[in-house]
């Protein structure tokens, strides 16, 4: 009975601390990390964006004696995105370059992108909202393109 009570309390609490916004966009496919980075770069290029930096935080942590988190970051950007942000609302520049998190679990690579929907209320009275909406669609399309390359491969 007491265990049931505790389970109910924790379940109730878990419901109450639900995120105020949705999860970030996430996709997964079975592929090597190297190939995933290449596919993502191609998917970004197909949407007028460019890979500007790879940040191997897995290697950085291992080099310093920590466990391997099997995570890498890829940053993509475009000059159009920068100029749009500058013109619409310079605060948007804090979201550029866009960050893709690549998580390796065995032969499965999961890619996560920032949840731009979470920013919408912040920009609701700004021309930046239009830019944010456009970026959200672009990011979804890049992820879809990334997955489509998986099915072709």
């Amino acid at each position: 009975m007491t265990r049931l009570l505790m389970a109910l309390l924790l379940a109730g609490q878990a419901l109450m601390v639900q995120p105020v916004q949705a999860d970030p966009q996430i996709v997964s496919k079975r592929i090597e990390m190297r190939q995933a980075m290449d596919d993502l770069a191609i998917a970004a290029a197909n949407h007028g964006m460019q890979l500007v930096k790879v940040q191997p935080i897995d290697q950085a942590l291992v080099k310093r004696g920590f466990d391997n988190p099997h995570v890498r970051l890829i940053f993509i950007n475009s000059e159009v995105a920068v100029r749009w942000a500058e013109a619409a609302d310079p605060r948007l520049l804090n979201l550029l370059p866009m960050r893709f998190v690549l998580l390796q679990q065995g032969d499965l690579i999961t890619v996560m992108v920032d949840d731009l929907a979470a920013w919408k209320s912040y920009y609701r009275d700004s021309p930046g909202l239009t830019v944010l909406n456009a970026w959200e669609i672009e990011l979804r399309e890049v992820l879809a393109d990334f997955l489509a390359q998986c099915t072709r491969g």
Binding site: Q50, V52, K53, N77, S78, E79, V82, L96
Partner: peptide, 10 residues
């Protein structure tokens, strides 16, 4: 870690 311009490599 590093620094960059907003339009670095673009």
């Amino acid at each position: 870690v590093r620094d960059q311009a907003i339009d670095s490599r673009l």
